[in-house]
């Protein structure tokens, strides 16, 4: 029987190239100041799942948390080739990764047999911990972090390539297991996960995305959050015309002084 792969899909703040104030007086995030996006590493996790599906056949189920804010990440999973999607109820604003993990694990359990649970490794700006580890603890499954490729996949075990500081380690683990996917697929050309499929997009436009009601107690909050603005570092940037030899020379002289 082909594997069932669950993939966590998070909608996270797009914190690239932020301009202007993003905190209000009280230290809250100013609504409207930020946009969201599909967590890029969760997108890598989805890509990994879909590649397994392409190569070996698998059922891929995307699991999300809470109602969509700006981007319907679960629908985007369906557009790219996930077979189904479910939403866990939960409060995204309560920024405790452990609490998120409990809700998501409940949704994963509701899917019946799941062989692999994939999730991005990165800890988004708003999260405090590595979601994969907390999921593994909730489910009682083994987990491997920083996975960026699958070496071998059998009925009951997987060998994952884990990126570490100075290279790679190949880790074998029995299934079911949680794999935290890192900066996966970086060697691909180009380094971008697959886009939507047009026909699927038509078909899945109105697909039902069931909500899994929470059945167990919410995890107690382990921490409180406070945010404060960081004054911008003032860097004065001088543009140097590469065609202008004198300017290049002046730049080198100034930069190398004291170096």
């Amino acid at each position: 029987m082909p594997h069932t792969i669950a993939v966590i899909a998070r909608e996270v703040w797009d914190t690239r190239d932020l301009t202007g104030q993003i905190l209000d007086e009280a230290g809250g995030l100013r609504p409207g100041a930020l946009q969201t996006r599909f967590d890029p590493e969760d997108l890598n996790a989805l890509e990994l799942a879909l590649r397994i599906k392409d190569a070996h056949g698998a059922r891929v189920v995307a699991v999300g948390l809470g109602a969509p804010r700006q981007v319907e990440v679960l629908r985007e999973c369906l557009y790219r080739g996930a077979d189904a999607a479910v939403t866990a109820t939960g409060d995204l604003a309560a920024a405790d990764t452990a609490a998120h993990a409990r809700r998501l694990a409940g949704a994963v359990r509701s899917l019946g047999r799941v062989d692999l649970l994939l999730v991005g490794t990165a800890v988004p700006d708003d999260d405090n911990s590595l979601l994969a580890r907390h999921l593994a603890a909730e489910l009682g499954w083994p987990a491997v972090s920083w996975v960026d490729a699958i070496e071998e996949l059998a009925v009951d075990r997987v060998v994952a390539r884990r990126a570490v500081e100075m290279g790679y380690e190949y880790v074998e683990t029995p299934l079911p297991a949680v794999l935290a996917v890192g900066v996966a697929l970086l060697e691909d050309d180009p380094r971008a996960p697959r886009p939507a499929k047009a026909m699927l997009k038509l078909k899945m436009k109105k697909a039902e995305i069931p909500t899994v009601p929470a059945t167990d107690e919410p995890a107690p909050l382990t921490l409180r959050v406070r945010r404060e603005a960081v004054p911008p570092r003032a860097i004065e940037t001088a543009t140097v015309d590469p065609e202008n030899e004198a300017a290049l020379r002046a730049m080198l002289d100034a930069a190398l002084k004291g170096a």
Binding site: Y79, D189, P190, A192, P195, A196, K197, A198, K201
Partner: peptide, 16 residues
Amino acid sequence: MLRDPVGEIAANRIAP
């Protein structure tokens, strides 16, 4: 559809 996949694929996969 023009946004994703068309615009997406063009800018991030084909153009490079």
